[in-house]
């Protein structure tokens, strides 16, 4: 198991849950982690069409996205948490947007900004090369409609996304989860990373061994 797998959030979460069965503490940790994540959403410097002008207006001093901790536009997907897709995505551009999304580190969030990215917009019927909504190829966290949206709408989208992040569970798995980890592998439902060491130690004796 390499360094990456050892430090992967799923593996760390598993170890935390095994060593800290007190779920109340983990819920407090959840709140702190979510607060940190939602208060420092770094968007990617990335605009496709006219919606990007409004996005720049939100970043500027009059509307000031930095009030919500989301004003640090990063010029690389490797340092960004939030991808604001601002503008019409056509078939040629969709691959690039998909690649940018794949290059972002977890946790990552996507805002579909404007009518084009929500559902095709004015190109809904006659846009032969326009992807009718970016949720065809990337998961979208918040849709902000408008053509283009007002800056207040984008701020509302940021606030909505922050509320969504605050409601997430990071360390705790579920409401009625009992910490019984004997022979349980890490759930592949979130990222699919499997911990081989944790998988190869069944505490419950099977019929073959008994």
């Amino acid at each position: 198991m390499g360094l990456y797998e050892r430090n992967h959030p799923d593996v760390m979460m598993f170890k935390l849950e095994r060593n800290l069965p007190d779920m109340g503490l983990l819920r407090v940790a959840d709140t702190v982690i979510n607060w940190g994540r939602s208060s420092s959403l770094w968007p990617m410097t990335f605009g496709i069409a006219c919606c990007a002008i409004e996005m720049m207006a939100v970043g500027a001093s009059k509307f000031d996205m930095d009030r919500f901790g989301a004003g640090a536009f990063r010029a690389t997907p490797r340092q960004a948490d939030l991808m604001i897709v601002a503008g019409t995505v056509n078939a040629k551009m969709a691959e690039v947007v998909k690649r940018l999304y794949d290059q972002m580190p977890e946790p990552k969030y996507v805002m579909a900004m404007g009518a084009c990215t929500v559902g095709g917009g004015p190109y809904w019927k006659h846009g032969y090369n326009v992807v009718k909504g970016i949720d065809k190829f990337v998961p979208v966290d918040v849709h902000v409609p408008g053509c283009p949206p007002r800056p207040e709408a984008i701020l509302e989208g940021i606030r909505f996304l922050q509320r969504k992040i605050m409601a997430r569970r990071v360390l705790t798995r579920g409401e009625h989860h009992t910490p019984d980890f004997t022979g349980v592998s890490v759930s592949p439902g979130t990222t699919g990373i499997q911990d081989p060491q944790l998988n190869t130690a069944p505490a419950v004796p099977t019929e073959a061994t008994s």
Binding site: A91, A94, E95, W124, N129, V131
Partner: peptide, 8 residues
């Protein structure tokens, strides 16, 4: 187009 749906 290249696996990305262009349908509504």
């Amino acid at each position: 187009y290249r696996g990305i749906s262009l349908e509504v």
